[in-house]
C-alpha cells in the first residue's frame, strides 16, 4: 500500500508563481523517502498541500488511501509534520505544547501525558518539560517539534529540514532516533539540504526542481548513475603544481591539497599506483562532497544546460 500517492499536483500562488507544475510520486508504506531539491524548488509547497496548510490548484493527494478532497480528517490523522520553521507557542511549556497537540488528535489527556513522557524522554527533553519553549536552544526546539509530531503516533512522518542548524552530535542522535521509528513501521519523508543525511537514512529519493520531479528512484539506483567522484588528497610533501596523472583530472587547491576526479570506470588502486610511481605519499584522503551531492548538482546543472540550449 502507498503511504502517499500524488498525481498531477499543481500549485499556482495568487502572485502567479507556479510552485508545482504537475508532480507525480508514490511513497510506499514503511519507506524512508528523501525529497530533495534546491531552495524554491517546490518541496515545502508539496508538503504544505499534503498537510493541508496550502490549498492545491489541481491534482490528487491520497494518504494511506484517504483522498484529501473527500476524507480530509482521516487523511490528516495519519500524518505527523515537523515543519521547516519553528511554529510553536514560544510562551507555552514544552509539556503543554506536546499534550495539547495530542488533544487535537483526540487523544485523552491521561494517555497523552504518558506518551509525552516517553517521547520527551527519548528526545532528551523531559527534564525541560515545565520550561517555556522560548528558553530552549535551537536543537531542543527542533526535537520538541519531532516529539509533538509523534505524539499521536502517525503512520506517516514528514520532516521538512529537521536538522537545519543543529549541531553534529544532536544531528547524529536524531538520525538514530528516526532510523528506529522507521524500523518500528513509521513511513518517513525527509527533506534536507544535508545530502549526507539523505544518503545515510533514506532508501528512496526524489529530486524536485522548478516544480517538477526530475529524479525518482531507489537510492542505490540513483547513486549508480554517479559518473565520477572527486577526492581530496593531502600529500606528505605539498606539491607546487597539480601532478599529471594519466586518466585522472587533478587540481591543486589553495591549501596545498590536490583534488582528483575518479571516473567510475577507474579504481582507486590505479590512482595510488600512479602517485607511488611519482614518489608522492598520501597522508589522508576524503570525498570532496558526498556522492548524492555530486549527483544532485550534476542533475540540476544538466537541467539548466538543457534549458539554456533550448532558449539559445
Amino acid at each position: 500500500m502507498h503511504a502517499l500517492h500524488i498525481r498531477n499536483l499543481t500549485k499556482t500562488y495568487a502572485n502567479g508563481v507556479e510552485a508545482l507544475k504537475g508532480i507525480d510520486f508514490d511513497v510506499d508504506a514503511g519507506d524512508f523517502y528523501a525529497l530533495l531539491g534546491p531552495n524554491g524548488a517546490g518541496k515545502t509547497t508539496a508538503i504544505g498541500i499534503i498537510c493541508s496548510l496550502v490549498n492545491k490548484s489541481s491534482g490528487t493527494v491520497q494518504i494511506f488511501g484517504h483522498d484529501i478532497d473527500r476524507e480530509l480528517e482521516a487523511a490528516k490523522a495519519c500524518i505527523g509534520l515537523v515543519p521547516q520553521e519553528l511554529n510553536m507557542n514560544q510562551f507555552d511549556t514544552v509539556l503543554n505544547i506536546v499534550v495539547n497537540q495530542a488533544g487535537y488528535y483526540g487523544i485523552p489527556r491521561r494517555l497523552a501525558l504518558s506518551r509525552a513522557e516517553r517521547y520527551l524522554s527519548e528526545l532528551r527533553l523531559w527534564d525541560r518539560r515545565l520550561d517555556p519553549a522560548r528558553g530552549l536552544s535551537g536543537g531542543m526546539k527542533r526535537r520538541l517539534m519531532i516529539a509533538r509530531a509523534l505524539i499521536h503516533e502517525p503512520r506517516l512522518l514528514i520532516l521538512d529540514e529537521p536538522t537545519a542548524g543543529v549541531d553534529i552530535e544532536i544531528r547524529r542522535s536524531m538520525w538514530e532516533f528516526l532510523r528506529r521509528i522507521n524500523e518500528e513501521g513509521t513511513t518517513i519523508i525527509l527533506t534536507t539540504h544535508y545530502l549526507e543525511e539523505a544518503e545515510s537514512l533514506c532508501r528512496h529519493v526524489a529530486i524536485i526542481d522548478e516544480g517538477r520531479i526530475i529524479e525518482d528512484a531507489p537510492m542505490s539506483t540513483v547513486l549508480r548513475k554517479l559518473q565520477r567522484e572527486v577526492f581530496v588528497l593531502t600529500l606528505a610533501d605539498t606539491p607546487t603544481s597539480a601532478p599529471f596523472l594519466p586518466g585522472y583530472e587533478t587540481v591543486l587547491r589553495n591549501d596545498g591539497d590536490i583534488e582528483v576526479a575518479v571516473d567510475t570506470n577507474h579504481d582507486l588502486n590505479g590512482l595510488f599506483d600512479a602517485l607511488d610511481e611519482r614518489g608522492m605519499r598520501v597522508v589522508s584522503l576524503r570525498n570532496k562532497a558526498n556522492r548524492l551531492e555530486e549527483l544532485f548538482i550534476g542533475l540540476v546543472e544538466a537541467k539548466q544546460r538543457n534549458a539554456a540550449a533550448r532558449s539559445a
Binding site: 498537510c51 493541508s52 496548510l53 480530509l72 480528517e73 482521516a74 490528516k76 490523522a77 500524518i79 509534520l81 515543519p83 520553521e85 519553528l86 511554529n87 510553536m88 507557542n89 514560544q90 495539547n100 497537540q101 487535537y104 488528535y105 483526540g106 509533538r148
Partner: peptide, 18 residues
C-alpha cells in the same frame, strides 16, 4: 491572531479537528 502570527495555528490546521 497570536496563533496565526506565531504560526502555531498550524498545530490545529494539520490535525483532524473540524
Amino acid at each position: 491572531f497570536g496563533a496565526k502570527f506565531g504560526k502555531h495555528v498550524e498545530e490545529m490546521l494539520v490535525s483532524p479537528l473540524s
